[in-house]
């Protein structure tokens, strides 16, 4: 047998694997561990006291409220966009795909800023809102809108390429056999994309819970009222309550770990999706 180029010697192989693992440990594992060590530095009682602070609980409630509004909205939008842009070809299709992707590339601070420009006191709709006693910026609606902007591409970006790659033959067959739109959608299309949908929803939820920059611009930072969990972390940290900041941060890190497990599961159960995902 010819000594193949890929038949790397065991020493080189261990060296490469060791170097890669060292990088993963340095850049990912050490920070992950540090969160929990700092959070429990004062013992479990101090941790529990920090996460039971009324301000922390209010921030947790607001964060979950935002996620509960934003994630289903993105699911509906993502499915509609997947159907329109995945199953059909029309002029302007690729422009729409690019516009859906745009929030990925826009700075979160810019995303928050545009909401201030629209709905702030001196913004385009500011006067109208004030006259009608409505408040968007520096209030929960602004936080929802900012989160909606930054999470906008997550579900659609997973579904559009997959629905495009799987074509329309199965749906057409269902139609020929007499299925209605909803029957076709729920019994043919949705089962085909369910893992990709879940994958997108996990990414979307993680970002919705953890968004900081965009929310920071529009929140107003009123403790107990317009503060989300990441903003509460910032306030505690800047007040030199490091242990409390890391205790609250450990809650967010726990949610992130749940997201990682769900994400790994969604990937594992969709071997067929995994290959298609890259075809745009």
């Amino acid at each position: 047998m010819i000594p193949g180029a890929r038949a790397v010697s065991p020493a080189a192989r261990w060296l490469l694997t060791g170097a890669a693992l060292a990088l993963v440990a340095l850049f990912l594992l050490v920070p992950l561990t540090a969160v929990f060590i700092e959070a429990f530095r004062g013992g479990a009682a101090a941790w529990a006291a920090a996460v039971r602070q009324p301000d922390a609980l209010a921030a947790l409630r607001l964060t979950l409220l935002v996620a509960v509004i934003v994630v289903p909205a993105n699911a509906l939008f993502g499915l509609a966009a997947g159907w329109a842009l995945g199953k059909f070809d029309f002029p302007g299709r690729s422009l729409l795909v690019t516009l859906i992707d745009l929030p990925f590339a826009v700075s979160p601070v810019v995303a928050g800023l545009v909401l201030v420009l629209l709905f702030g006191r001196t913004g385009l709709f500011g006067e109208w809102l004030a006259r009608n006693g409505l408040k968007i910026v520096f209030a929960p609606p602004g936080i929802v809108l900012a989160t909606l902007f930054v999470t906008f591409p997550f579900v659609a970006r997973e579904l559009i390429p997959l629905m495009r790659a799987s074509g329309s033959e199965e749906e057409e067959a269902a139609r020929v056999l007499g299925a209605g739109f909803f029957q076709t959608f729920f019994r043919v299309t949705l089962p085909n994309v369910k893992w990709a949908l879940l994958y997108g929803l996990v990414l979307c939820s993680a970002r919705a819970v953890g968004e900081f920059g965009a929310v920071s611009v529009v929140s107003g930072h009123i403790r107990g009222r317009t503060n989300t969990l990441p903003l509460e972390v910032e306030i505690l940290y800047n007040e030199y309550q490091t242990q409390a900041a890391f205790a609250v941060a450990s809650l967010l890190t726990g949610l992130a770990l749940v997201a990682l497990v769900a994400k790994a599961a969604a990937r594992r159960f969709s071997p067929a999706d995994a290959g298609k995902r890259e075809n745009r």
């Binding site: 990912l28 990441p230 990682l260 994400k263």
Partner: peptide, 17 residues
Amino acid sequence: SLIDLPFALPTAVAGIT
């Protein structure tokens, strides 16, 4: 799975850590 940590971890948590 750990590779995706920076996607899932809120940026403020990454920042203070």
